[in-house]
Simulated scan of single mutants.
Amino acid sequence: MFPQSSQKKFWTFSNEQQLNSLRLQQNVTYINTHGSDMNQEQRDDFFLSSIEERILLKQYELYLNDFCRRFEPPMPKCVVGTAFHYFKRFYLNNTPMDYHPKEILATCVYLACKVEEFNVSIGQFVSNIKGDRNKAMDIILSNELLMMQQLNYYLTVHNPYRPIEGFLIDIKTRSGMSNPERLRPHIDEFIEKTFFTDACLLYAPSQIALAAVLHAASKEQENLDSYVTENLFLAARDKLPVLIEAVRSKLKFGNHK
C-alpha cells in the first residue's frame, strides 16, 4: 500500500538537504514579508533564524510526545506516530513565527485521533490539557480545517507498527529466535527516538520497522543477518546493498535524539 500512497508520493523526500531547503525557504519568505521595512541587523534581532526555528520545534516535539504519553484514555501508538507526521509536515510549509507550535501540536494530535479512529470527543480531548480548556477547544476546532488544508488533505499515514508485527511473526516462523517478543521494548524505544528525527519524511515504514527490529536484536545479542539476507532479500539480491545502507542510515537516525 505504501508505494502507491500519497505519503510516498507527496510526503517522502529524497534527503535531509531537501527538507532543510524547504524550511529555510519558509523562514526567508516570512522575514521578507514581515520585515520589508527593516535593515538586516533589525531583522536578525527581531526574527527567528531557520536554525532557531528548528530548536524551538524540537522542544515542542518533546511536549507532543509527553502529551500523548500522559493522555487519558491511553493513546494507541499509531495515533502518536500520525500526530508526529502531521506536525513535521505542517512546518515544512509554514513557520513557527506564523503559527504557534503549542496550538498546532494540539490540533495535530486531535486530528490524528480522528483519522486513526481513536474515538474521543473534543470534551474528552481538552480534559487532558492544562489551563483554559474552553479556549483550547476553540483553538483546536478553528485550526482543524487549516491543518487539513496544509496537509493537502492527505491524511492517511502509514506508520511502521504494522510491518513490525509482520517482522516479528516472520522471525518466529523462519528464524532460530524462540521468543521474538522480547525484542519489543527495544523496538518501541527505537521508534520513539525516530519521532525526534526526520526519519518518517525520508524512509518507508518498512525500512524503519526493519531497522527497529535489527536494533532490538543487537541489544538482545541476537544475530538476524542470515534471516535478513536469506529470507527477506532472497528475491532481490541485486538491491541488497542499497537496502542495507538504508537500514544502517535509519539506525543512525534512531540513535540520535
Rank of each mutant, 00 (worst) to 15 (best):
P74W: 04
R174K: 14
E53K: 11
S21P: 08
L168K: 02
S178Y: 08
V242K: 13
V213H: 03
T107Q: 06
F125W: 12
S36E: 15
L201E: 02
V228P: 12
P205R: 10
L146Y: 03
M75Y: 06
C78K: 14
F233D: 06
V247L: 05
L151R: 07
F10T: 04
L64P: 03
Y99M: 13
Y227K: 08
E52D: 11
S226A: 09
E245V: 06
P205N: 05
V228W: 09
I140K: 09
I187W: 01
C78D: 15
S218V: 04
N159T: 13
R174N: 15
R23L: 11
N15Q: 03
M38C: 11
F196A: 00
I164P: 04
T12G: 06
A199W: 00
N152W: 12
S178F: 03
F87Y: 04
Y63I: 06
F118S: 06
F196W: 02
H186W: 11
D198R: 13
E192S: 11
F87N: 04
H158F: 14
I171C: 03
N94L: 09
P205S: 02
L111A: 13
S218W: 02
R89W: 05
Q42Y: 10
A236W: 09
N39K: 07
N179T: 00
P76Y: 00
K219T: 01
L145K: 07
Q42R: 12
S175H: 00
L19D: 02
V115F: 00
Q149T: 09
A199L: 00
F13N: 05
D132F: 02
A106M: 15
F10K: 05
I104C: 08
F67L: 15
F90Y: 07
N93Q: 14
H158E: 09
M75E: 00
Q40T: 13
L24M: 11
F67V: 09
P74G: 10
E117C: 12
A83R: 05
L155Q: 05
K58G: 09
R43S: 07
K257M: 09
N15Y: 03
D98L: 15
L62K: 15
M97S: 13
H100P: 12
E117N: 14
L145D: 08
I208H: 07
S36G: 08
A246R: 14
P185Q: 01
I187L: 02
A217E: 01
S14K: 15
E52V: 14
Q25T: 09
Q221D: 12
I104Y: 05
Q124M: 10
R23N: 07
N223V: 00
W11H: 08
